[in-house]
Amino acid sequence: MRTSSLGLFRPGQSPIHRLPPGTKLLVLLVLGAASVVTQRWWWLVAALVVASVLAYRLAGWGVRLWWTQLRPLWMLLAFTAVVHALTSGWQRAVADTGTIVVLVACAALVTLTTPTTALVDTIVRMAAPLTRFGVDPERVGLFLMVGIRCVPLVAGLAEQVREAQIARRATTSTRAFVVPLVVRSLREADALGEALVARGIDD
């Protein structure tokens, strides 16, 4: 089961890789719920930040990959830290900014160490109790899989549309790109819908 080449998953043999996906998601959930409490002590949050870096070590990587996960957020994090430092003191700045860092880094770690398909299977299993509320877990899985499949399909269409645009020396406006992309995607959806029916999804 390797959908990995599409996702952020990085293969490995570390203890974190070998943990069942359900357990990892549970730890993450507990961590998120506990953050309401841990946020009261800045030193505890600081310790958790250090622990999150160590968790990346344990998974076989270093502080660089840890930072890669946080880099897109650095401006917002800096802004939050500065505002808190000015309005409520540096302890609050450490606690609140640090909590975001811990949660984002740990959630990213789950993603990095768990293959996409394993997560889909876990979600389908977790959705089982929802059957009584009219949720069909198998349907959920089907949606996720068809969705995963459509990403490269539409990306391929986008590439073709872009090439056609260049070939015709059309303008590079967003609209001139997106209209044909959406129209071709809708046609592709018609064909895919027909294929789903032919292969037994007729409701």
Partner: peptide
Amino acid sequence: RRRIGFLFTDPDAQIIMPTVSEDIAFGLRR
């Protein structure tokens, strides 16, 4: 549809699952 399979012109549009073996197995999921 159980008795008659259908092969379309554009294979891209009839591949439903992300990986090769998953797509082959799709028809047997129920």
